[in-house]
Computed example of a mutant assay.
Amino acid sequence: MDSEPPFEEAYKSLLVKEENSTEVKLSNLLEDECQLPVIDLSRLHGSSEVEKEECKREIVRASVEWGFFQAVNHGISQEVLKKMRHEQVKLFRQSFEKKSGNGSGEKVSGLPGDSYRWGTPTATCLNQFSWTEAFHIPLADVSKSIKSSNNTTLSLTIKEFVTKASSLAQIIAEILAENLGLKSSFFRESCCPNTSYLRINRYPPCPLPFTVFGLMPHTDSDFLTILHQDQVEGLQLVKDGRWITVKPNPEALIINIGDLFQAWSSDVYKSVKHRVMTNRCLERFSMAYFFCPSYDTIIQSGREPAIYRKFSFREYKHQIQEDVRTTGSKIGLLRFLL
């Protein structure tokens, strides 16, 4: 199909080494399946103070023990999620030339021209490579598109989804902050839809499913991530030193802690390494809302003893980009230890 990225052609030099890639192959043997903690968020808005406080405790417990949890009755309607999925599928079915902007024809309307990503341009070996295509979208650009009357169905649907996702992220962040005895208004002052990002993902069928990652192991560089995925298994995370497979739940959103919350909480909440595995026969779709501050926001440990030196979000992003460019991998918070 002309919509498919040319993975095998572009990354031939990496893929021919697959017989020697034992590190990736062996990592796939260390898997268990799990059901992440499932938390009913409707209790936060009910009349029972007892249930509200119990819900908050469950959010805190999951964030401490897992760094991940599943949220049901989360306030984002199935109608909105279905509209997003419909637009997502339409987006990726467009020609590769149009998505990538390599052709002379029309580019994807309503999205910034440089938002499309595929593969891993910086990869120097197979375990640094991701078999995925995505649109990584600064939400400030979506707002600009709407204000300029470039009101595509896609941009309007994204706006509807991220408005709800931002509100949900604010609620979760404030609960986690209050548990630490820290200023919960920090997030309303520093994070908003226009400083956050949306990544719309597609994982095409892969002829080497036990050799190539859909998305290589990583932690997220934000405060919180809100993920909506389809029913094709693929997401895995590290728990107690082992890779475990997350069983998809059609009713739930997945919420996980990012690096900034780990730094801000002095390691009370953990940003957990996770990855996506490929599938030989099935494509997989997901979308992730990254709850981020403005670039000038200072991230400073709020609990003593401080573990990390203070840094701006701009500095953190720059350091990640430099490390990926020079080493092929993200180093992350280890760079900012005191």
Results as ranks from 00 to 15, higher is better:
7 F>P: 14
8 E>I: 06
15 L>W: 07
19 E>R: 07
19 E>T: 10
23 E>F: 00
34 C>S: 10
46 G>E: 10
49 E>I: 05
52 K>L: 08
54 E>K: 07
55 C>S: 12
64 V>C: 09
71 A>Q: 04
72 V>I: 09
76 I>W: 03
81 L>V: 13
88 Q>P: 01
94 Q>F: 04
97 E>M: 05
105 G>K: 12
110 G>N: 05
120 T>K: 03
130 S>A: 07
136 H>E: 15
143 S>D: 15
143 S>H: 14
146 I>Y: 03
150 N>W: 01
150 N>H: 07
151 N>E: 08
166 S>P: 01
171 I>H: 09
173 A>Q: 13
177 A>Q: 12
179 N>L: 06
189 E>C: 10
198 L>F: 01
201 N>F: 03
207 P>G: 05
210 F>M: 09
215 L>Y: 12
216 M>A: 12
217 P>Q: 08
218 H>M: 04
220 D>M: 03
225 T>M: 03
225 T>E: 12
240 D>C: 09
242 R>I: 04
242 R>S: 11
246 V>C: 03
246 V>M: 01
248 P>Q: 08
256 N>D: 11
268 V>L: 13
270 K>Q: 14
275 R>L: 06
277 M>L: 07
279 N>M: 04
280 R>F: 04
287 M>A: 05
288 A>R: 00
288 A>S: 05
311 F>C: 09
311 F>H: 14
315 E>N: 08
316 Y>I: 04
316 Y>V: 08
319 Q>V: 11
321 Q>I: 00
324 V>N: 02
329 S>A: 12
